[in-house]
Amino acid sequence: MSYTFDIGDDTIWAPANSVARIFLGTVKTLSEEYHVPSGFGDDLMGMVEIDPTDFAEFVQRVLAERARSLHLYKSMMLDGILPILITLATRGRMAVTGRSPEESAYLEEVRSRELPMFASSE
């Protein structure tokens, strides 16, 4: 079994249940911490709809927090989820841009990895 993360009729990611639950828990915590909506809708029996506008703003905010962070453990934790967020934004054709040299460098490094994130149709 797996979850599906959809934008409209397009599934952009279909991770295993445990991966999806950990991911969504982390997203919820970041959304609360940074006081910005994540763009992820309710979990409807393993199907999650993404609002592209809110999600792009959320990713932009997490990216900014990571670029500004001087705290080793905070940076390490954000490094665990931010590449996934950036990859999902890219798959969903959402613009996430580097607004500082640090953000641009981080985006370039993540995008060069080309993380495999298979959707159910792949």
Rank of each mutant, 00 (worst) to 15 (best):
M1Y: 06
M1G: 13
S2Q: 11
S2G: 01
Y3S: 13
F5E: 07
D6A: 00
D6C: 02
I7G: 14
I7T: 12
G8I: 00
D9C: 01
T11S: 10
I12Q: 02
A14E: 04
P15A: 09
A16P: 00
N17F: 01
S18K: 12
V19W: 01
A20W: 04
A20N: 01
R21M: 12
R21T: 15
R21F: 07
R21E: 15
I22W: 05
F23S: 05
F23T: 08
G25R: 12
T26C: 03
K28S: 09
T29L: 15
T29I: 13
L30Q: 01
L30V: 01
S31Y: 04
S31D: 03
E32N: 10
E33A: 13
H35V: 09
V36A: 08
V36E: 08
V36Y: 02
V36I: 15
P37Q: 08
P37S: 04
S38L: 13
S38V: 08
G39T: 12
G39Y: 04
G39A: 08
G39N: 09
D42F: 03
D43V: 03
L44R: 09
M45K: 14
G46Q: 06
V48E: 05
I50A: 04
P52V: 00
P52H: 00
D54L: 11
F55Q: 08
F55P: 14
F55Y: 15
A56S: 15
E57Y: 04
F58T: 14
V59D: 07
V59F: 05
V59I: 13
V59H: 06
Q60L: 00
L63P: 03
L63F: 01
A64W: 01
E65D: 10
R66T: 12
R66F: 12
A67C: 06
A67W: 07
R68M: 12
S69H: 10
L70N: 15
H71G: 07
H71S: 12
H71E: 15
H71T: 14
L72Y: 11
Y73M: 15
Y73H: 14
K74S: 09
S75P: 03
S75Y: 09
S75T: 15
G80D: 13
G80V: 07
P83N: 08
T87M: 08
T87R: 10
L88R: 03
A89H: 07
A89E: 06
R91A: 15
G92T: 10
R93W: 01
R93G: 00
R93E: 09
R93A: 07
R93L: 02
M94W: 05
V96P: 14
G98Y: 10
S100C: 02
S100E: 04
P101D: 09
P101S: 02
E102L: 07
E103C: 05
E103F: 02
E103S: 05
E103L: 06
S104R: 11
A105M: 09
L107Y: 03
E109C: 04
E109P: 01
E109S: 14
E109W: 07
E109F: 11
V110Y: 02
R111M: 11
R111P: 00
R111S: 03
S112P: 00
R113H: 10
R113K: 13
E114F: 02
L115K: 06
L115Y: 14
L115I: 09
L115G: 03
P116V: 05
P116N: 06
P116Y: 00
P116G: 00
P116W: 00
F118A: 09
F118G: 06
A119L: 03
S120H: 12
S120K: 13
S120A: 14
E122Y: 05
E122N: 11
E122G: 11
E122F: 10
E122I: 04
E122R: 09
